[in-house]
Computed example of a mutant assay.
Amino acid sequence: MTEKTFLTTTDALLPQVGRSVSIGDKKIALFQLSDGRITAIEDFCPMTNGPVLEGIVSGEYLYEPLRDYKISLIDGRIQEPDEGQLKVYELLIEDRNIYLKGASL
């Protein structure tokens, strides 16, 4: 059996608008892409030391709200010419419920 932690429901998400969830002291930003996929990324940019939740989503990328860094919502990489990495979380979706897959944050 896969270990999982409930985050929210798919009904709580709006396309291309971030939703914040907290697990302990960790903040996770969830995004529903325009094609319906749902991604989860840490809600903290190492370049600005600020949240990414309010960024603008375009395709598979998030434009960080403070400095406009382009971040992949698929692998968490900050795109060139900048560099850096945000943690991406694996999700499990069952019956409209969104779970964080596994135990590690």
Rank of each mutant, 00 (worst) to 15 (best):
F6W: 14
I41C: 06
T2G: 09
T8R: 06
T5L: 14
L13R: 06
P15T: 02
V88L: 14
S20K: 11
M1T: 12
P46F: 10
S58H: 15
E90Q: 14
R96G: 04
L105M: 10
M47C: 12
G76H: 10
D68E: 12
P15E: 06
E83A: 15
V88C: 12
Q79D: 15
I98H: 00
G50Q: 13
E60T: 10
D43G: 07
V57E: 08
V52K: 05
I56Q: 10
A12L: 09
A29M: 04
E90G: 09
F31R: 02
G59D: 05
E3R: 11
L73I: 08
K87M: 12
T10L: 14
V17A: 12
G59A: 11
T8Q: 09
L92G: 07
R37W: 00
S20V: 10
L86E: 06
L66Q: 07
Q85R: 08
N49L: 15
L53D: 10
G50Y: 05
E3K: 04
Y61L: 14
R67C: 13
F44T: 02
M47W: 05
Q85F: 10
K27T: 13
Y61C: 07
K87V: 14
L66T: 11
Y63E: 09
G24E: 08
V21A: 11
S22H: 14
S34D: 15
L105A: 00
T2A: 15
S20L: 10
L105C: 02
L105G: 06
T5R: 11
V57K: 03
G24L: 02
L73F: 06
T9R: 11
K87P: 11
P46G: 08
R77P: 03
G55Y: 00
F44M: 03
G55P: 00
F6R: 11
I38T: 08
I38E: 00
A29V: 03
T5D: 06
T9H: 01
A103C: 14
L105I: 12
G36D: 09
Y63I: 07
I56C: 05
L30M: 03
R19F: 03
G59K: 07
I28T: 02
K70L: 13
E80A: 13
S22F: 14
Y69W: 12
E60W: 08
Q79I: 09
G102A: 09
V21Q: 05
E80P: 08
A40S: 01
Q85P: 04
D43V: 00
E80F: 08
P65K: 01
E94S: 13
S104G: 06
E83L: 15
G76Q: 05
S22M: 13
G36E: 02
V17K: 15
M1E: 05
L7T: 06
A12R: 10
I78K: 07
T2E: 15
R19Q: 08
P51I: 10
S72D: 08
A29E: 01
G59T: 02
V88T: 05
G50I: 05
I28R: 03
Q16F: 11
D25I: 12
Q16P: 13
A103F: 07
N97E: 13
E80S: 12
I38P: 06
E80D: 04
D11F: 12
L7F: 03
L7R: 01
T5C: 09
P65R: 01
L14A: 13
A29S: 05
V52Y: 08
S20P: 03
L100E: 01
T10G: 04
L105F: 08
V57T: 08
Y99K: 03
T39R: 06
L91G: 05
I56N: 13
Q85S: 09
L30H: 00
E64I: 04
L53C: 10
K70M: 06
